[in-house]
């Protein structure tokens, strides 16, 4: 379940603010629902999501039950150097997801 889709511009000028978008596949089970036999379904949401740019944290979110399934983030990062954006998230079940995108500064 570590599917995600990322969009980053192909190339950026130095110090330009680039738009980063990511959509992560996750059911974001709220913990408020019950199954057919009436038993509560355990909460399983992505607890935290973070993005590092060449190792430096640039964006982080803590989430709870209020976020819809398949969360989608859009944020801006100043393109200092060519390198990588590393995305990492972890859910209540302890499942870790990672993804990577390349930033090219010209």
């Amino acid at each position: 379940m570590a599917d995600s889709r990322i969009s980053v511009p192909d190339a950026a000028r130095r110090d330009e603010a680039i738009e980063v978008r990511i959509s992560i596949r996750h059911a974001m089970e709220t913990g408020y629902r019950t199954d057919e036999s009436g038993k509560p379904v355990a909460r399983n949401v992505i607890r935290s999501f973070a993005c590092r740019y060449n190792g430096d944290p640039v964006f982080a979110v803590r989430m709870s039950s209020g976020i819809a399934a398949n969360p989608y983030f859009r944020f801006f990062v100043t393109a200092r150097d060519s390198g990588t954006l590393d995305f990492e998230w972890i859910d209540d079940a302890g499942t870790r997801g990672t993804a990577q995108a390349t930033v090219k500064v010209v």
Binding site: D3, R5, S23, R25, N70
Partner: peptide, 12 residues
């Protein structure tokens, strides 16, 4: 195409 969550299934 990126905001559309349906594409998560298309890629799958």
């Amino acid at each position: 195409d990126l905001a559309n969550p349906g594409f998560l299934w298309v890629e799958r």
